[in-house]
Amino acid sequence: MNNRVRELRAEQGWSQAELAARLGVSRQTVNAIETGRYDPSLPLAFSLARLFAQPIETIFQPE
Rank of each mutant, 00 (worst) to 15 (best):
F46G: 00
N3V: 02
P40K: 05
I56R: 03
F52D: 02
R9H: 06
S15I: 10
Q16A: 12
I56K: 05
A49S: 15
V25G: 08
F46N: 00
L19W: 06
A21L: 13
L19P: 04
R37V: 09
A49G: 07
Q16Y: 08
A20F: 12
T29M: 15
A32H: 07
M1F: 14
L23W: 06
E57K: 10
L44M: 15
N2A: 12
R50M: 09
Q61D: 04
A53H: 09
A32I: 01
E18D: 14
R6H: 10
Q16C: 03
R50F: 09
E63F: 07
V25I: 14
A53W: 02
Q28V: 10
Q54M: 13
E11Q: 15
L23D: 00
P40I: 04
V25K: 13
V25R: 10
L44P: 11
A21V: 10
N2Q: 15
I59H: 07
G13E: 06
R6S: 07
A21T: 10
Q16H: 09
I56D: 00
L44W: 12
D39A: 13
S41N: 01
F46Y: 14
Q61K: 06
Y38W: 08
W14L: 11
R37M: 12
N2T: 14
R27A: 05
S26G: 09
E7P: 11
P43C: 04
P55C: 03
Q16V: 00
E18K: 15
R37S: 11
A17H: 14
I59C: 06
A17F: 07
A20L: 05
R9N: 04
E18P: 04
T35L: 09
A53M: 02
R6M: 11
Y38R: 08
L42A: 11
L8V: 05
E57Q: 10
N2F: 15
R27G: 01
R50C: 09
I33A: 05
W14K: 03
P43A: 03
V25L: 04
G36K: 05
A10E: 15
N2E: 13
Q54H: 13
Q54V: 11
A17L: 15
P55Y: 06
A10H: 13
L42V: 10
T58A: 12
A20R: 07
P55E: 03
R22G: 00
L48S: 01
P40T: 01
F52M: 01
G13Q: 06
F46A: 10
N3C: 06
E7M: 12
F46V: 13
E34P: 03
A45E: 02
G24K: 01
N3S: 08
T58Q: 14
T29D: 00
T58P: 00
L19E: 07
Q61G: 00
P40F: 04
E34F: 05
I33D: 01
S26T: 08
F52W: 04
L48Y: 02
M1V: 14
D39H: 11
